[in-house]
Design a protein around this nucleic acid. Structure first.
Length: 195
DNA sequence: CGTGTTTGACCAGCGC
DNA sequence: GCGCTGGTCAAACACG
């Protein structure tokens, strides 16, 4: 099966497959554990006018959700401090020091498959059942040496056709295999967002 | 044999 | 303090 991926706009009004490509990008670095439906709020954000439209070309459209990133973005995203080869799992956070959350980019795609072939090589390192969602969330990490980009993939239970992909970090290396559409999308993500 | 997946366990944060 | 939840680890396993 080949990866049919149609990225769709948030407005469900145009749920019929539109010929043009539209990407919904959410800069989401601040969700916490009380956010049961992690991404449900994003639709609301869309209505709150947080969306910038950045028409890239005649055939593609990027819809950005900007949630005021604290840091200046993922410019130094290769500094994913999570990966300590020394066995300590979590980041140790000093007292009184606020937890630094990595900016995340999340976007929804309407896809038959969960895994988007974005040209990078990913290794799955976990899967968890998510509250209020009958589909599990999968955790992937880029296998490129020194690249600690992570992504989470989750299918919405209220719309099984929708896959939410959350990227954390930015790749410090070129795409390994070219996939035209996604390469474009990722490039735009890196340009237009601070993710 | 190298690479990727599965899955149970572990840990930390948060709310009550 | 306790339980719930999300995120990660790592051993076992599968596959080309």
């Amino acid at each position: 099966m080949d990866n049919f991926v149609s990225v769709f706009p948030y407005n469900n009004s145009s749920s019929s497959t539109s010929p043009h490509l539209s990407l919904n990008l959410m800069n989401d670095y601040s969700y916490s554990s009380d956010q049961n439906n992690t991404y449900d709020h994003l639709e609301d954000d869309h209505e709150h006018g947080l969306v910038e439209k950045n028409p890239i070309s005649s055939s593609e459209e990027v819809v950005l959700d900007h949630v005021s990133p604290t840091s200046s973005g993922l410019g130094n995203s290769d500094g994913n401090d999570m990966s300590s080869a020394s066995g300590s799992r979590k980041i140790s956070i000093k007292k009184g020091e606020k937890k630094i959350r990595k900016p995340k980019c999340a976007f929804q795609t309407r896809s038959q498959v969960d895994i988007l072939d974005d040209g990078y090589r990913w290794r799955k390192y976990g899967q968890k059942a998510v509250k209020n969602n009958k589909f599990p969330r999968s955790y992937y990490r880029c296998t490129y040496q020194g690249c600690n980009v992570k992504k989470q993939v989750q299918r919405l239970s209220k719309d099984e056709g929708v896959v939410v992909t959350t990227y954390e970090g930015m790749h410090s290396h070129p795409i390994e295999k070219s996939t035209d559409n996604f390469e474009h999308i990722l490039t735009q993500m890196q340009i237009y967002s601070s993710c």
